[in-house]
Nucleic acid binder design. Structure first.
Lengths: 109, 109
DNA sequence: TAGCATCATCGTAATATTGCAATGAACAAA
DNA sequence: TTTGTTCATTGCAATATTACGATGATGCTA
């Protein structure tokens, strides 16, 4: 069909998958890196840093915002984007906990 | 268009995005959780644990294998899948390093 | 007010992903 | 050899994603 069968999985599985999905595009990684590197949150020249047109960047920003990874504040004419620190750390823990589950003693293949 | 402009981004950005993309589906998270929970790597009854048909699971397994997250060994008639521990830990570090970049002092929005 | 800048949204085209029935390949057992 | 089991692959339909030109909304400035 093409549509993910979200209903059949647990809330935790879907949350982790949604987070990963939001990170699953190099442009979105690049946007986050720009926001991380800037000592203050920059406003709209993310577009200039990326090899993509303005509507495309805007769309990626929207997805990062929906995922809770970034926040956007209106600042006069432009918009100030920055990392959503609270969610960022929550997601950091979520991923960390997921990857910590591996029992190193077991290695059969 | 529809195709991701992979060429315009760095190898690191693409690597991270590919990893995240592989994790970006609840079925694949569920498969990994099954493999993590089993004390030994199970063989093919992953299908029984998931609400998806066998070809669909096979496809997800293929993607996880391509991403380097799991390995598969032929064992007579069936196949033994398990976490690729080496890559797993590499990816764990990769994600950890990415999320560690946040400077907590900066929070403008 | 008129013009400009910034950013979102709409509409559309190209491509990717998801899911499964049907089928195929490989092996084990009768 | 035949039958059954396990898993991959093929082919297809439905849906999602990616990208961008055109356009709209908003606020600043002259």
């Amino acid at each position: 069909m093409g549509a993910t069968k979200t209903d059949h999985f647990t809330a935790q599985q879907n949350e982790l998958a949604n987070l990963a999905k939001a990170l699953g595009h190099p442009a979105r990684i690049a946007i986050l890196e720009v926001l991380l590197k800037m000592e203050a949150c920059i406003c709209g020249d993310i577009v200039n840093e990326l090899p993509l047109a303005q509507p495309t960047v805007s769309q990626h920003l929207k997805e990062l915002k929906n995922a809770g990874l970034i926040k956007g504040n209106i600042e006069g004419n432009s918009i100030c984007y920055c990392i959503d620190a609270e969610n960022w750390n929550k997601y950091k823990e979520l991923l960390s906990a997921f990857f910590a589950q591996l029992n190193l003693k077991i290695n059969c293949c």
